[in-house]
């Protein structure tokens, strides 16, 4: 089996996040990029599927600007992916949204992978768009919110669970399929030092932006009007009281009249 696992760089949440000077978008300067959380799970699940089905090839794919995409692909190689391809984004394209789906679909269309696997949503833009947009563009079945993904090599089909707010669905779908993963069967592994060293020397194939330009043609990304940080948290308010009853009364009053979270 061949798995194309899609990996996206997302800003490290502990890092310093700030808007650009004109306030239009997130300032990429000084940001440390890490493998987006759900994509980390997707890589883990791809590696687990390979362990359970020897001979499987796990191919990491990322679309975006250098060097962050290349670094994320090397992180994937260090975790154990067999190969990596960087799809170069033309200048001016944000590596997210429908542009990403169009560019990635243009590359994936020529790749006969049984499984296109990615996180159900990215750690930064949280669109949750890619699995279904890619499936539509590739003309393959697509599913989000997937867990417990297994491969039946004899029947050439995948089984999985879709966890929804109101319950869970069990599915069996013949390959090829596009899957947005909610959770891997185990916590994502940590890359080991020898693998990190090895990954630095492995090739990362490059698909030039010209190759995907036709897919993007006439579809310039539409940026948001403004980017702003969440409002800083205000300080805690202390309630002064003489008895527990008084504390409860004062707290209820504040929840009703100030916070307006109680009727």
């Amino acid at each position: 089996m061949e798995i194309q696992v899609l990996v996206k760089p997302a800003p490290e949440t502990e890092g310093r996040i700030a808007p650009t000077a004109d306030g239009s978008r997130l300032d990429p300067a000084g940001i440390k990029w890490v493998l987006a959380g759900y994509d980390e799970s997707a890589v883990e699940q791809a590696l687990l599927l390979r362990e359970r089905s020897p001979g499987t090839i796990v191919h990491a794919l990322s679309w975006g600007p250098a060097p962050r995409s290349e670094e994320i692909l090397r992180a994937g190689l260090a975790l154990g992916c067999d190969r990596a391809t960087w799809v170069e984004a033309p200048p001016g394209f944000e590596p997210t949204g429908i542009d990403a789906a169009r560019a990635l679909a243009a590359v994936l269309a020529d790749r006969p992978a049984e499984l296109v696997l990615l996180g159900q949503q990215s750690g930064d833009s949280e669109d949750g768009l890619q699995p279904l947009a890619l499936a539509a563009l590739l003309g393959r079945p697509g599913f989000g919110a997937v867990s417990r993904l297994t491969w039946d090599a004899a029947g050439r089909q995948f089984s999985f669970l879709r966890s929804l707010d109101h319950g869970a669905e069990e599915w069996t779908v013949p390959a090829p399929v596009v899957v947005g993963l909610r959770q891997a069967d185990q916590d994502p592994r940590t890359a080991k030092l020898p693998m990190i060293l090895k990954s630095r020397k492995m090739p990362v194939d490059r698909v030039a932006s010209a190759t995907v330009a036709a897919a993007l043609d006439g579809h310039p990304g539409s940026p948001p009007l403004r980017f702003s940080l969440p409002a800083p948290r205000s300080g805690a308010k202390l309630i002064e009281y003489a008895s527990p009853e008084e504390a409860a009364q004062k707290l209820l009053k504040r929840l009703r009249e100030e916070a307006k979270v109680l009727p």
């Binding site: 060293l197 990954s199 630095r200």
Partner: peptide, 15 residues
């Protein structure tokens, strides 16, 4: 270099 940073990242995360 990115090569060195990747080693530093591993140790930092572990720490």
């Amino acid at each position: 270099s990115p090569d060195l940073e990747s080693l530093q990242d591993l140790a930092r995360k572990f720490a």
